[in-house]
Design a protein around this nucleic acid. Sequence first.
DNA 1: CTAGGGGTAAAT
DNA 2: ATTTACCCCTAG
Length: 338
Amino acid sequence: MGAPKQKWTPEEEAALKAGVLKHGPGKWRTILKDPQFSRVLYLRSNVDLKDKWRNMSVMANGWGSRERARLALKRTRHAPKFGESYSTASQSDEEMVDARSLDASGSSSPNDGPKRSMMRLDNLIMEAINNLREPSGSNKTNIAAYIEDQYWAPSNFKRILSGKLKRMAAAGKLIKMKRKYRIATTSALFERKQNPSTQILEGRQRISSRYDHDDVNYLTKSQIDLELAKMRSMTPQEAAAAAAQAVAEAEAAMAEAEEAVREADAAEADAEAAQAFADAARKTLKGRSTPTTVRYISHKSQNFVVFNTKDGLFLRNFAECVVKEDKSMITSFVMYST
DNA sequence: CTAGGGGTAAAT
DNA sequence: ATTTACCCCTAG
């Protein structure tokens, strides 16, 4: 029965994401008619968009409504024990919220989950802000409400959330303005598959959680040296071009819809963003003896800053004004546009 | 038109 | 054999 099955391309997914970011979920027809997206999505129907969004949401947040229903029907298998947490064959990634919270018996000892749950919280916060879709950002109460509604709420959740929000804002992952948080458009890349055996290096080698858009990507020492050598031998234009290329590839690969964000309301957010960035950058660059180069590049109307430090390459998406505000730490300033 | 239920080819 | 992810159907 004739459905050839046409898989969604990353471009289409990105367009859909951007469309939802722009018009909100549920406005499938609107998104489809938007000339900005219709060029990519002209093969798809509004229903296709809706279905695809459902699928992507399921992936993003663990269970969509559909999975919930299925799960309810499925849980006759292998006699679930009393208060057992079903760890479905879910791949070990984050997504899954630590189970066994509302255990009727145990209670009283809220032993904090180790690092793992903190990493997950990052993603949950991002998801919350994303799905709440409040144009000017979401405040802590709403974020907490979302997470509590979708998942479970540990007793000390509010406190943890507060700390985490603060940290993420300081790191530039979130932009805080007037008690509201927005997702910063920052990308850190140059990812590389790293050989586990090469990880045994100095003592202070930190491996960041994963490739999940974290601010910093730690590379092994040899890889850093290699990249630095490469950067040094390049002309500034070449280096910037290489960085821009990396940005483009990563963007496509991750299908991140980051373009739409800034169109919303730039001015005030940028000022806030500048502050967060400056703080983070100052912290990052403090006390480095090795020469640090910072390059500013522009790629497809988006602006990026590349830090080249002994700890690796930092790539951050940022508004032009930021760099102008804080020139002090820039040793090499290159404008490049593609 | 959208949300959600459901079917099923393709992937694992 | 089970899971995933497109596609279709239809009530509201």
